[in-house]
Design a protein around this nucleic acid. Structure first.
Length: 576
DNA sequence: GCACCCCTAAACACTG
DNA sequence: CCAGTGTTTAGGGGTG
């Protein structure tokens, strides 16, 4: 476990058998290898001692005494990690040297060689530095032509994406984060074999190799370019390593956000329900849109016995109060029925998962009855629902509405009757309710006409779309990871929710643009509403921490915090 | 203070 | 008679 994986004796044996080098050459190589191993062992011992020392000190200080000393040790830790990193790079170069000389053949199924520890503590500046190093590395070591055909670069990348043993030494977090390597899009690098003209490294006539962007007119020239410019050498391999690290940083951030969401879910669910029912893990991928067949659905199994109708809506006082974490992103208000602390700003994660969230957590949805009813009706295939189907939709989509039925059902009926936008239509089977969009949108100008009360607009018509988009944008901006934009928008759940809301959004936008063109020129409603509440959101220190800035992680002793940091996040098997 | 919105509660009528 | 449906009124809280 803790022994450095350099070259196993078996591999050495292979080399000895396969190659035709003189015993002297082999001896030299072997000695080099052993020296490297020895050095690394020493370093690792030192590293362990450092960790123990740091942990001891932290335990002793505990209350933050002598932070200077602590910092010193942390700095030493960091320095040591870098040292270890260098060692491994050195070792890697050695391996590459062996490979180039045909001394070492890596088979696809072979265990990963320690190409590079997946240094999770690497901060952007370090990455940049590494990038500089690797981009200039090819000049220092001459490649020896194309005699490395036995080593497939993609295979190298694939095998190296799995956490090597050295990476575990480097950062024990990796050992608890095995899913990272699983999620690594490693197969993409091979996809061009199956899809000859769709290569992940080729798009829009440009080579997408990191830092390349060479123009290739056609796929053939791209392949040519790929083979000539990005052949297996130190530079390409190192670039591959860097890319691996980039990917891993992104995955770490994702894992972190997932953990945060999970914690929120757990927290809310535990608070609003009995502890017996653990929060169901959310399924980002398999989440379905907010129901298509309301009629067939029966109310889900009630987690609670029916409560007294007169009982106050307990989740209102329980659930949302815990949502007011300051880490939440600020978006437009949905329903300001309750005080500000209940005016839950919805984070992107919330929105992405709110379907599942409200299905499982007995938290009152921050939407008005009218909005919900409208949503239910518009989601139905016929754009019409019976009262009972509306009931079913409520109970199916929101755990909150699985109790106090008398109260909210009365409210639903009340809303149906009260609002002109809900039209009762006599049907063969009885009466069904439909939505009169004109009437529904009529209400908004009245509210907006006052002028600055655009928020009212948001309250009703944008009840869904506003938090979705705004939160997404806020999250993107906050995380300052443009890379995430694509991935996040590709989230099926988000897409489903967005599509479910689109009609509402379109109608609202249209209307707003035509009647309220001066309300917020040049700004989207989401943007317009954002400043309204931005003042309410204190800056979360954790949020201020850049997603790629892992200084904290780097400065931490892995042993010391690995049991609470995000690397230890339980694997969500259901995510895939 | 006022208007408006939203929610909850409740009374009442109608219907199958 | 009962349950479900639908309408209406009243009152309270929040917000601009």
């Amino acid at each position: 476990m803790m022994t450095p994986q350099v070259i196993t004796p078996q591999q050495m044996q292979q080399i000895l058998q396969q190659q035709v080098l003189s015993p002297q050459q082999l001896q030299v190589l072997l000695q080099q290898q052993q020296a490297l191993m020895l050095q690394q062992q020493q370093l690792q011992e030192f590293y362990k001692k450092q960790q123990e020392q740091l942990q001891l000190q932290l335990l002793q200080q505990h209350a933050g005494k002598q932070p200077k000393e602590q910092q010193q040790v942390a700095t030493q830790q960091l320095a040591f990690q870098q040292q270890l990193l260098q060692m491994q790079q050195l070792q890697q170069q050695h391996l590459l040297s062996l490979q180039r000389q045909g001394l070492l053949t890596i088979q696809p199924g072979q265990p990963a060689l320690p190409l590079q520890p997946l240094a999770q503590g690497m901060i952007p500046t370090e990455l940049q530095q590494l990038w500089k190093e690797v981009t200039s590395a090819h000049t220092t070591e001459e490649t020896t032509g194309n005699n490395h055909s036995s080593l497939d670069l993609t295979t190298t990348c694939v095998s190296s994406s799995a956490p090597s043993k050295t990476s575990l030494i480097m950062n024990p977090h990796a050992s608890t984060n095995g899913q990272l390597s699983v999620h690594t899009p490693k197969r993409e690098s091979l996809s061009h074999e199956e899809h000859p003209h769709s290569h992940p490294l080729y798009g829009h006539g440009v080579c997408k190799w990191p830092g390349c962007e060479a123009v290739c007119e056609d796929f053939q020239s791209f392949l040519k370019h790929l083979n000539s410019e990005h052949a297996l050498d130190d530079r390409s391999t190192a670039q591959c390593r860097v890319q691996m690290q980039v990917v891993q940083q992104l995955e770490l951030q994702l894992a972190k956000d997932k953990e945060r969401l999970q914690a929120m879910m757990t927290h809310l669910h535990v608070k609003s329900t009995e502890p017996k029912t653990a929060p169901q893990p959310l399924n980002l991928v398999s989440s379905v849109t907010l129901s298509k067949s309301a009629s067939e659905a029966s109310p889900q199994s009630l987690p609670h016995t029916p409560t007294t109708p007169t009982a106050p809506i307990t989740p209102v006082t329980q659930g949302p109060s815990v949502i007011t974490t300051t880490s939440m992103h600020t978006v437009g208000p949905i329903r300001r029925r309750y005080s500000d602390k209940y005016n839950v700003p919805i984070s992107s994660a919330d929105i992405a998962q709110n379907q599942e969230f409200y299905k499982n957590a007995e938290v009152r949805p921050p939407f008005t009855y009218a909005s919900l009813i409208r949503q239910a009706i518009l989601e139905s295939p016929e754009k019409q629902l019976t009262l009972n189907e509306i009931y079913n939709w409520f109970t199916r989509m929101f755990a909150y509405f699985r109790r106090n039925a008398a109260t909210w059902k009365n409210a639903v009926r009340h809303n149906l009757s009260l609002h002109k936008c809900f039209v009762r239509v006599e049907n063969v089977k009885g009466a069904v309710w439909t939505v009169d969009e004109v009437e529904f949108q009529k209400r908004r100008p009245q509210k907006i006409s006052g002028n600055p009360s655009l928020i009212k607009n948001m309250q009703t018509s944008h009840a869904y779309c506003t938090p979705l988009n705004a939160a997404l944008q806020a999250s993107m901006a906050e995380n300052s990871i443009p890379l995430y934009t694509t991935a996040s928008m590709g989230n099926p759940t988000l897409g489903n929710l967005a599509s479910a809301i689109r009609e509402e959004l379109n109608g609202a936008m249209e209307h707003t643009n035509s009647n309220e063109s001066d309300s917020s020129p040049g700004r989207s409603p989401m943007q317009a509403v954002h400043p309204v509440h931005v003042k309410e959101e204190p800056l979360d220190p954790e949020e201020a921490e850049g997603p790629l800035s892992l200084v904290t992680t780097a400065n931490h002793s892995p042993d010391f915090d690995h049991d609470r940091d995000y690397e230890d996040e339980p694997v969500h098997e259901d995510v895939e």
